[in-house]
Design a protein around this nucleic acid. Structure first.
Length: 424
DNA sequence: TCTGGGGTCCTAGGACCC
DNA sequence: TCTGGGGTCCTAGGACCC
């Protein structure tokens, strides 16, 4: 230790990333979608958030608003699906459980990506290939695996693996040829803004970026960008995080299916979002120390008057009480509501979540009488067991004119009994 | 007519204090 | 001729990710 030489084996990080994940999930249950152009739309059937390779080849860009590509889709026989997050969430955990058999240390990074520590494995490429076959065989989901000595190099390797249609790829920190093929905007951590500024000073790809003088990098993107640069140079700055740190905030928000003018309807939507957000924190055993409510008009409509606002409230004591949160959220909404605007979106954010186990022990809480707690728990229990139809709070309303559109959703094959595929 | 949702981290600048 | 300086805390906004 401390000699400046390598001690122990060179670190090897793998990034296993599902190919076109949402589309692949749909294909598992509808094999007829294989080899056809398929896209999955975001909430509200708004944008294309997943595209099969065939759909990419047609020229459908990532994130394209559906109304802009509708003609293109119709003209090319593209299968268009609404998103089905219950299905994707369930498929995701299946994939993770297979991956976990291949490495002692695994970090679930997103719904379709996991990092694995393969340090010390004799032949990481061969292991990755076996892993990829296993995932495909057991879950039906195709994945690509990138290998590198840091997370950022593994990301870059994964990108090349996907681009070239090969399953697994390793990129070493001094592999000039490979790193030159990664455009600057495709480096993990460099988005649209930063890539423009980096291109302006002549840095066009990952190789050039990695070798640029670090003070100029820091001047452009601060310590975060400098970390990315070091990672590309093989110096690890982003550690594996096996257990994800507890969430700090949670948000529930939706665009409305139709613009909303009236306060009453907004109140209904906000009550629903508040309850959804509260259920999330309850399920994680957390309490909210504050909440934020926001509303906004459609920012794309330049012909219409715009208004957006938000209110933040600190709670005197952390809570997971839906009644209290809904009451406060509605009060905050009424406070900032202005009539005469066509509202497009609203949301509720629960802030500064703390663990309910470490609840700071007020034995005599004014609002938290045992009977009230029991009542709240009973309603929430019924709601979670039987879904929204089991029980709901008064303020949630029953009209739901503002509900989002989801007109092309496939059945929830794996999570709802009613939707199980029938075998004949 | 139609443009997603849910997160994190960092930084600059203001308020406040001594 | 020329307003003190330095620390902490908080927040809004900007950047990124999938």
């Amino acid at each position: 230790m401390g000699s400046g030489h390598e001690c122990g084996p060179l670190p090897v990080i793998a990034l296993a990333d599902c190919n076109n994940f949402y589309v692949s999930c749909e294909r598992v249950f509808r094999p007829s979608l294989e080899k056809r152009p398929v896209i999955v739309l975001s909430n509200n059937d708004g944008c294309a958030v997943a595209r099969s390779n065939e759909a990419k080849a047609i020229g459908i860009p990532m994130g394209a608003p559906y109304h802009q590509i509708r003609k293109l889709c119709e003209g090319n026989g593209v299968v268009v699906l609404s998103s089905n997050y219950e299905l994707y969430g369930d498929m995701s955990s299946r994939v993770v459980s297979v991956l976990a058999r291949f490495a002692p240390e695994l970090e679930v990074y997103s719904i379709d990506e996991s990092f694995l520590d393969l340090t010390g494995v004799p032949s990481p490429l061969r292991l990755s290939t076996r892993m990829r076959d296993q995932v495909k065989q057991w879950t039906g989901i195709p994945i690509s695996v990138g290998l590198g000595s840091t997370k950022t190099l593994a990301k870059a390797a994964n990108r090349l693996a996907k681009k070239q249609g090969i399953g697994c790829q390793l990129v070493a920190k001094d592999d000039r040829e490979a790193l030159e093929r990664i455009a600057i905007e495709d480096v993990w951590g460099i988005g649209r803004r930063l890539s423009v500024r980096l291109r302006r000073i002549g840095l066009l790809n990952a190789w050039q970026f990695a070798r640029a003088p670090s003070p100029s990098i820091r001047a452009i993107g601060g310590v975060t960008l400098e970390r990315t640069q070091r990672e590309l140079g093989g110096i690890s700055c982003l550690e594996m995080e096996e257990i994800s740190p507890p969430r700090k905030n949670t948000c529930s928000s939706r665009s409305f299916g139709k613009p909303v003018m009236e306060l009453e309807e907004l109140e209904e939507a906000v009550a629903n979002y508040a309850i959804r957000a509260t259920r999330k924190v309850r399920s994680e055993g957390s309490l909210a120390s504050g909440l934020q409510v926001f509303i906004m008009t459609n920012r794309f409509r330049e012909d219409q008057p715009q208004y957006s606002n938000s209110r933040v409230l600190g709670l005197d004591e952390p809570t997971d009480d839906p009644i209290r949160i809904v009451q406060n959220a509605k009060k905050m909404l009424r406070d900032m509501y202005r009539s005469g605007y066509a509202y497009k979106k609203a949301g509720v954010i629960l802030l500064d979540l703390v663990s309910s186990a470490s609840r700071q022990g007020l034995l005599f809480e004014e609002h938290g009488s045992p009977r009230r707690q029991d009542f709240v728990n009973a309603v929430e229990e019924a709601a979670s067991r039987y879904g929204g139809g089991g029980a709901f709070w008064g303020g949630q309303g029953i009209g739901k004119q503002w509900r989002m559109r989801r007109e092309m959703r496939t059945p929830r094959y794996t999570t709802h009994w009613d939707d199980l595929p029938l075998v004949r």
